[in-house]
Amino acid sequence: MKSENIHSVLKVEDLSIGYTTKKKCSMISEGINFSIHKGELVGLVGTNGIGKSTLLRTLAGMQAPLKGIISINNISLNSYTSLQLANKLSIVLTEAPASKTLSVLELISLGRQPYTNWVGKLSENDKKIIQQALRATEIESLSHRKCFELSDGQLQRVMIARALAQDTPLILLDEPTTHLDMYHRAYILKLLKKLTKETGKTILYSSHEIDLAIQLSDKMLVMTPEKVLYADPESLINQGCFDNLFPKETIHFDREMKRFTLKD
């Protein structure tokens, strides 16, 4: 039990997520419990509108939880200042960067902001980390391009490189494979896998690529209307939790093949 606590990078206990407005509070999901260890790649799956983005936003501290405790490195999320949190956690969102004229190098170097001085001057060390991020995502040749010149797949790699440049033990990605072709979806997820193995970073990503996520993730978070399950893909399959994920009339989960197939 004790050793588990030491290595737990992200721990969530009895979490309820949703939105509160003046009049009412609308619960999206409740009773979420999981603990992600160092160096793990975790895939978050579930149908549209089930609350994957809300969960990620809550974990990133962008919105308050309705109930429960989130801790990063065994310290409660609330007790971090925003700058301290920027040292622990970086994000890749579905939204494109606001400015399209940023060059790739400029964009990635913004990831160093939590560490730079008041005008954002980059030290030699900062530049070294930026180069490492470029290399890890294989975009060295793009470094002088502007964002509007990039394809969706290239832009996604740039956004991941920015998160890498922020040099945090934990990275959260909201649907990094959306809008990408089959090759790039596989490429991005394999890249995430490689990063967890080589750099020891902990990565939590949401995706609709359940087949790929089963093959690549160390653990998976499956959100269903009833509950949120957390385990390794193999035991989730054996529990039959993918069987009822979607209406069976159209697609069903093939336990042998470990993937969804069309129902004819």
Binding site: M62, Q84, L93, A98, S99, Q113, R162, Q166
Partner: peptide
């Protein structure tokens, strides 16, 4: 400069 990425990214960088 941080705002060039949008408000959410800027906040996430502290």
């Amino acid at each position: 400069n941080a705002l060039l990425l949008g408000e959410n990214y800027a906040k996430s960088m502290g």
